[in-house]
Computed example of a mutant assay.
Amino acid sequence: MMKLYNKLKVKFLFWKKFGIKKNSVTGITGSGGKTSLMFCLAEELSKQGKVLVTTTTKIYETR
C-alpha cells in the first residue's frame, strides 16, 4: 500500500486532515476504501509511536 501512497506523492498527512490526536481511538466507516485508509493512517501514525489496527472483518496481506 505504501508503495502506491509514495508514488502518488501525497502533499498532506491524512491524520492531520482528519484531526486525529495522540492516544485517540478512531473508527472508519463507509462503503469503500476503509482498509486502504486504515493502512495509510497506521503507517503515518506509526512514525510517532505505537499503533494498534484491528477490524471486524477479514484483512488480507497486500502483495
Rank of each mutant, 00 (worst) to 15 (best):
S46L: 09
S31E: 15
S36I: 04
K58G: 07
C40W: 07
T55H: 07
Y60V: 03
L52Q: 06
Y60Q: 12
T62S: 15
K17Y: 08
E43K: 13
F39P: 01
K7Q: 11
K34I: 03
G49L: 02
M2N: 11
L45N: 02
A42R: 02
K50S: 15
K3Q: 14
I28A: 01
I59C: 05
L52K: 07
K50C: 08
T35V: 00
L8W: 13
V25R: 13
K3A: 11
G32T: 02
I20H: 09
L8N: 14
V10N: 12
L41M: 05
V10E: 14
G30W: 09
Y5K: 14
T29G: 08
K22H: 09
S46V: 04
V51P: 03
G19K: 07
T62C: 06
R63H: 06
N23A: 11
K7F: 08
Q48V: 05
Q48W: 04
I28V: 11
Y5G: 04
M38N: 04
L45F: 00
K11N: 11
N23L: 10
K50F: 11
G33P: 03
K47W: 07
Y60D: 12
K17V: 04
G19N: 11
T54I: 03
R63S: 11
F14H: 05
L8A: 15
K21Y: 03
L45G: 05
M1R: 13
K9F: 05
C40T: 09
N6H: 15
N6G: 10
S24I: 06
G49V: 01
G32D: 02
M2L: 15
